[in-house]
Design a protein around this nucleic acid. Sequence first.
RNA 1: GCGAGAAUGGCGGAAUUGGUAGACGCGCUAGUCUUAGGAACUAGUAUUCGGAAGGAUGUGGGGGUUCGAGUCCCCCUUCUCGCACCA
Length: 819
Amino acid sequence: MKYPFKEIEEKWRKRWEDNKTYKTDLTEKEKAIYTLVMFIYPSGSKLHCGHWYNYGPTDSWARLKKLQGYNVFEPMGYDAFGLPAENYAIKTGVHPQDSTFENIKDIRAQLKKMGCMYDWDAELMTCVPEYYKWNQWLFLQMYKKGLAYRKKAPVNWCPDCQTVLANEQVHGEGECERCGTMVEQKNLTQWFLKITDYADELLDGLKTIDWPEKTKVMQEHWIGKSYGAEVKFKLDGREDELTVFTTRPDTLFGATYMVLSPEHPLVEEITIKENLTAVQEYKEKVKSLSEIDRSSTSKEKTGVNTGAFAINPATGKKIPVWIADYVLMTYGTGAIMAVPGQDERDWAFAEQFDLPIIRTVQVPEGWEGKAYTEDGPAINSEFLNGLRVQDAKKKMSDWLVEKGLGESKVNFRLRDWLISRQRYWGTPIPILYCEKCGETPVPEDQLPVELPYKVEFKHDGGSPLASNEGFVNTTCPTCGGPAKRDVDTMDTFVDSSWYYLRYLNPKFIEGAFDTELGKRWTPIDMYVGGAEHATMHLLYARFVHKFLRDQGLVDCDEPFKRLIHQGTITNAGAKMSKSKGNVVNPDGFIEEYGSDVFRMYLMFMGPYELGGDWSDKGIVGVDRFVQRAYAIVKDNKNVMKHGRLKEKFEVAELSDEEKSVYRKVNQTVEKVSYEVEHFHFNTAVAALMELQNELAKNLEECSKEMKAYTLARFVTLLAPLAPHMGEECWQILGNEKGLYDNPVWFEVDAEGLVVDSVTVVVQVNGKVRAKLDLPVDKEQAEVKGLVFANDNVIAHTESKEIIKEIYIKNKIYNIVVKG
RNA sequence: GCGAGAAUGGCGGAAUUGGUAGACGCGCUAGUCUUAGGAACUAGUAUUCGGAAGGAUGUGGGGGUUCGAGUCCCCCUUCUCGCACCA
């Protein structure tokens, strides 16, 4: 009979739900493990292969831990605010709240079919006041500490999403993280969270967490810490100064001109009359340039002379001040000292505009390049001459401090997190503006500031909340006078930066989360999600966690101790997406093979972190495996019921077949435990297939006790990967209690692993010439005779001079000959 | 341009510290059973020479270290990802 997956999967899902098998007792800290996948965005489309690929294997890891006796907490929820629902509303008129709730209903049903051990009592969604109230609370805590502030700044504006974006949300060559549209710059007043206050700690903390190296490198680069100095340059004939940041203070003597970013506030002021038109034209031109044009490294350098001069503080000489688009207002001070001798960009610029070049580092002999950025002795630099770069930097920095011309300075690439969004479907920012008192935070006891249902969704750039008079107009909590609410909402990454704490008790009303549980259950032991969040969600969450720690609300420094990225499943080489129409729908496979087979096939496809191109070619292989496994178990119905189960066998007393089975099953217990633990699901499945091949060959010849011993292990190993089937088989073997209600995991019998004979390969000059089956641990002297008795070995060594013999016990016997 | 990773049969992919390359699965070939099978089972399956025994070649390309290299070192090619004038 074919494995009736449909009935069986339904039967166990119902049983698990009825028994609350996966309800975690969070007060029990003993052997606690918090497993988390990034929560799901409830879009209108169905769960696709990517979701299954993310959630299924992660759940198998959690199930392994559960069977091993850990108290595992694995929740699931909905990242329910966000643009797509709102865009859908603009298109169809269906309110985001209605469509979101509807989608959540569908997705919940689909998630349940996967058969993951989610603790459904911990389910949460971010779009309800019970949740977003605490986003507002979090904002106010930061506000109190001066970490939430408003400023006018050049911000990234996505014309398609009609909203501003944080720096992290601008990708590649300047396109919007969500829609890929080219982002524009606008000068607007917006709310920021001061993530830069934590820059150093965010950087240092990376050393303490078990994350993929490339993700840590990305964050490191994103934070972009660099050591250098700030140097003040007097402007010729003016009172004000220009401050630059440089990582190479040692090259100051070679600074032959300066460059300001076109957006630099002093540009217009210092430009001489004759050059003003050119400068303004250039500024206009830069403004209209796309980010691609401006950031292209290969393009010719452009710029305009302001006509103003600054004084090089080291040489006392007048140097010209230019503006150029290669200097960015958002990095450093928006101004640089140009040292063409030691900087490639400056060299290119100097060449372009015929500006002087002075080398201040001796180039090595035979150097034919242009700018020289490596180490070497200083030249043309008076008191620095002869010093290597490191020492020259130090000496120059000291000199600058002494003369009051500058100071050592650490600079970061990391910018503050812009959280205002000119959109409706998000958390209202709990700030109001009073005519008398000005910017006023909403008192905590008046939270939540509820998102009104009735607004107009227009795709025209204004915040939709502005259209609801009842929302906008309010009274000032300080003076009672009329006030207006902030009509922007928060970036949804605020929601996801602390949700893992809310899971611990989503109904908690006394605070954002139960701090007692928060302290017990963080950091999260295993976090699994896409690599695309490397510098957004995963950075924000670390920041917020550290902030909460400083508030005394959690104890640990990092939220996610161990992180794994699932690979991407592509289709015909392309990322699956609705717009490309290449999304593979899992439903058909679930229908045909069941969810256990489908998730096991996803695991079997290849290394979890690599992903791969979708193909259904091999799924029949996994299905056959499951069918055979089921048949073997059925043939041995109730085998665990009769008599006491043996925990260990004396290998010496076993028949050859039993010995073979006994060894294989113990090897498999060891292998599967290790591989699943390390997210190597493909090899875990392969190991189980190997065991099954062994069972097909030899199980019939085994004693009943051995059959019970073996099948008990086979089924428990199978259970994390194919949970419904594991339970069913466990029951067929004669167990009354469910496997996940009464977790069982078997220890390896080390003696069962011991092999008594090994194949030793005999090589002559590194080529395999014979294979000998020998008892283990034979000494060379004992093996030698056998080796040289082998016909093929004789044929290859005869009449040749033996130079050397290498023997590695139980492995290899290599003979080196000459002639 | 810089940084990281990858390249193994017809295909997806295995391979502790260097020690039998190709586990496991798909596909394919032959056979068994069957009214039939795109079912199930059994055997085979890197390439190549050979009737066989056995030999030669083989982990993107080239060099090196070693008794021995998919694995370590150097150079190159291709692909994927990330960053992109960061001062």
